[in-house]
Amino acid sequence: MNTYSLYSLYGTLCTEFFDLDKPTPPPLEYEFYKNYVEQAPGEILEPMCGTGRYLIPLCESGFNVHGFDASTHMLNALRTKCAQKGLSPKVWHDFIDTVRTNLLYSLIFIPDSSFVLFLTNEEIIRSLQKLYSLLKPGGIFVFDVETIYAAPSKIGLWQGKAHTRPDGSFILLNTLPLALEDDKATVICRYELCDKGSVIKTEIEYFKIKLYRPGEMMALLEKIGFSSIKEIKAFDPHKIPSAQDYTIVYECIK
């Protein structure tokens, strides 16, 4: 099964709910990554760009950011929004471990802890090696991951939220966190499109992520060959992480 075995299955309801629930990036995270974009001397790439939550506002600010994603549904949503805004960024469907591009990049960034979708050491190392190969000498790869301290606390309890669509129907999301297993967190997600008291469509997804223990990601990055690796407190470039932070940022220089 491909590296993005779960991510590539993101369906239409999941994609639409994501855009309704998270239409813009969190300001602190956005400014953190935008600072790297502003300083990049050459081409910029956002793998796993999703529906363009970061890519689109960066392009609107005048930056030439390329992106790719494994989910055709999310890419379709990105392209629709770009067309509405008169934007035409270079985006394409691809997987990190098989990405096809002749360009080398000065900056590669993956926000929103999307990298935790890689579950095995083999997948993680293969993806890191590919990203390393896409960087120019001196290029920067910056990304954030969730730690073991971000594990769900309410195991076995359904939780829900809903968003109304422009036509008056709504999408209901129910989530069920399962017990942690081998540092993998799994959540069952049930998306339901509801209208006039009836469920019109249902999508079920098993959302699984890898949570990292202290020092674990640093050890993996050291195997890749980066000339410099720095741990950063999320999302403060002037601080180092605390012992039990939920999220850690990594800045890696080729």
Rank of each mutant, 00 (worst) to 15 (best):
P111N: 05
T101W: 01
S153P: 01
S127Q: 03
T101C: 01
L58N: 03
G86E: 01
E146R: 14
S106W: 03
T72V: 05
F63T: 06
K85A: 08
N64W: 13
V145Q: 02
G138N: 07
G62I: 07
L55C: 09
G86P: 10
T80L: 08
H66D: 10
F143R: 04
E60I: 00
L131D: 02
N64K: 15
L135T: 09
A151G: 00
L131V: 07
R126K: 12
I96P: 07
K90M: 06
E60D: 03
S127K: 03
P111H: 04
L131A: 02
S71M: 13
A151I: 02
V99A: 06
L75F: 13
D112P: 00
T101A: 05
F109R: 00
L103S: 11
F143I: 01
V91I: 13
Y132I: 04
I125H: 03
S127H: 01
F68I: 05
D97P: 01
F95H: 15
F143M: 08
I148Q: 09
P57E: 11
Y132G: 00
G138D: 10
P89T: 00
L131C: 07
C59W: 03
T120H: 08
W92T: 00
F143A: 00
V91Y: 10
P89Q: 02
R79Q: 15
L135G: 09
A77K: 14
N64Q: 09
F118V: 08
L87M: 03
I110A: 07
L134S: 04
L131F: 05
R100W: 06
D144E: 09
F143P: 02
L119C: 02
T147Q: 10
F68D: 08
P152K: 01
C59F: 11
V91R: 00
Q84K: 12
G67K: 05
L55W: 04
T80R: 11
S153L: 14
T80V: 14
P137C: 08
C59N: 13
N121Q: 15
A151L: 08
L134V: 10
L55A: 06
L131E: 02
S113F: 01
L75K: 07
F115Q: 11
L107F: 09
H93V: 13
A83R: 12
T80W: 07
L87V: 12
S113M: 04
P111I: 03
L104S: 08
L75H: 04
I124S: 03
E123Y: 08
F118W: 09
I56S: 00
P89L: 01
D144R: 10
L87T: 01
S88T: 07
D94Q: 10
